[in-house]
């Protein structure tokens, strides 16, 4: 395999990792764009998504209650279950800090992240878990000299569909228009009789569901342990810096930039692959401090 085939196989791997980051950062940016809350607990919801997905796969699909292929459906169900937690968290906790500064919001959501991590430990223990069958059962296809697992294609396709669904909801439905309106001018939308509290809850739940889907779709690929949500959370801040805080388009572009640069950097510059991502972030911030698609200021 010559250099071009290595490049294309690294590109493909980068797309897979980027797909997970897209779902994660879409949810994070959605919550920030429309609720003005920087949700540190996003990593905790991602972790919950992985664990719930693991539980559903091992207790239902792999125990024979449903065919093995049902794993492909169960990973979406797991993300949805994670979203249910949003119905409790938003009115109970987040609603109380909307009017307060980002520092208070960060503290609250960070505390929530720790609570979620501890719940995972209590519920599933501290041991490492792995569900290998979920990754292998779709088989492989030879591509660019490596055996590319077919599940990766499913993950790419699934992420594309979910991202498109979110775009459709936000830009092609009344609900989405209302969400964008409330992000532009909260008080005016309230004055028009819209129940903003219910709307905020729904927005938060959608954001959490996307974090859960990011985790549940990754479950077959990864080892499972408490605190696994930390890596995407850290990367999401780089994505937000590159793509722009509050921009969904920026979340998508930033995810692809980070995922692809990381993958190609590993292949060709292994000693400095981590540094390259931060270097790109620094260059973009120097040229456009608000990120590639970020707004200069957010009007509420």
């Amino acid at each position: 395999m010559g250099i071009p085939t290595l490049f294309f196989s690294l590109l493909l791997n980068g797309l897979v990792f980027s797909a997970m980051l897209v779902l994660f950062s879409l949810g994070l940016n959605l919550i920030f764009s429309y609720l003005n809350v920087l949700n540190m607990a996003h990593g905790g919801f991602y972790t919950l998504g992985i664990y719930l997905s693991m539980t559903l796969a091992t207790t239902i699909a792999l125990k024979g209650l449903l065919p093995t292929y049902s794993i492909l459906l169960l990973v979406f169900v797991a993300g949805g279950i994670v979203g249910l937690i949003g119905f409790v968290v938003e009115p109970l906790l987040l609603r109380r800090v909307y009017a307060r500064g980002h520092a208070d919001q960060l503290l609250l959501t960070y505390g929530l992240l720790l609570i979620l991590d501890d719940l995972v430990k209590l519920g599933w223990g501290l041991e490492l878990h792995s569900v290998p069958e979920a990754y292998y059962f779709l088989g492989n296809v030879p591509l660019f000299g490596v055996s590319f697992p077919n599940y990766n294609f499913f993950l790419l396709f699934g992420c594309f569909i979910l991202a498109w669904i979110l775009w459709f909801i936000l830009y092609k439905t009344i609900f989405g228009k209302t969400c964008r309106a409330i992000a532009e001018h909260r008080d005016m939308v309230r004055a028009l009789g819209v129940n903003s509290e219910k709307l905020f809850t729904l927005i938060f739940v959608i954001g959490v569901v996307y974090a859960g889907w990011g985790g549940s779709l990754m479950m077959p690929l990864t080892g499972i342990f408490p605190g696994i949500g930390l890596e995407p959370l850290i990367l999401s801040f780089i994505i937000v810096a590159i793509g722009g805080l509050g921009s969904l388009k920026g979340a998508v572009m930033g995810s692809f930039i980070v995922g692809l640069i990381r993958s190609i950097g590993i292949g060709y510059f292994p000693e400095i692959e981590l540094m390259i991502v931060y270097l790109i972030m620094a260059i973009i911030l120097l040229i456009r401090p608000q990120g590639l698609f970020g707004r200069r200021e957010i009007v509420w």
Binding site: M1, T5, S9, N13, V16, V146, R262, I264, I266, G267
Partner: peptide, 14 residues
């Protein structure tokens, strides 16, 4: 504590 080793794997196989 990485969660994605696939680029490393691909490069090593190559």
């Amino acid at each position: 504590y990485s969660t994605d080793f696939t680029p490393h794997i691909v490069k090593t196989i190559e």
